[in-house]
């Protein structure tokens, strides 16, 4: 597992947990890899993110990522906040284990979707409280080799068609 000390700190003492009842923007995303969920609420004034809160259903990394993204976004202009990338979150956390990088996508995606939601509301495009998309990982779904795109069996060490090593997933 080996989470960095910063990850463990944000996991154990997450900043900005909760909801903003009269939020100006709400972003809800599902983690397509493991099926977990994150909601980010923002309060915007003069184009600046005055307040931001989160709720997360997910692993230790996902909680730390949520906490860190709220810290990074607070006080930023919308444009600056849109610039925050997944890799920035992972970096600020002192790195994430390779099989947990997908959780950092969740953070930036939720923040960006909250900002988009705010802008859409402002433009009168949508009503508040958009239903969050729910992605679920395919259960027993097919696995494809990323190199030759042939269908391979689950957890193959390498592709039996093209011989390339399959991307790493470790097991206990």
């Amino acid at each position: 597992m080996a989470y960095s000390p910063i990850v463990m700190d944000h996991f154990k003492n997450p900043r900005n947990v909760g909801e903003i009842l009269d939020a100006d923007g709400l972003g809800e995303v599902g983690n397509p890899v493991c099926g977990d969920m994150m909601s980010v609420y923002i309060k915007v004034e003069n184009n600046i993110i005055q307040d931001v809160k989160f709720k997360t259903f997910g692993c230790g990394a996902a909680i730390a990522v949520s906490s860190m993204i709220t810290e990074l976004a607070k006080g930023k202009t919308l444009e600056e906040a849109m610039q925050i990338k997944n890799s920035d979150v992972a970096k600020a956390l002192g790195g994430l284990p390779p099989n947990k990088l997908h959780c950092s996508n969740l953070g930036a995606d939720a923040l960006h979707s909250a900002i988009k939601n705010y802008l859409d509301r402002k433009a009168g495009k949508i009503v508040p409280q958009e239903e969050g998309e729910e992605h679920h990982p395919e259960k027993g779904g097919a696995c494809y080799c990323p190199y030759c795109e042939k269908q391979v069996v689950e957890e193959s060490p390498f592709c039996i068609f093209c011989g390339k090593e399959m991307p790493h997933d470790h097991d206990h």
């Binding site: 977990d36 692993c59 990982p137 097991d171 206990h172």
Partner: peptide, 11 residues
């Protein structure tokens, strides 16, 4: 037994 902890990230 969470997917998140499973290494293969599967339920």
């Amino acid at each position: 037994r969470s997917a998140c902890a499973s290494g293969s990230l599967r339920a």
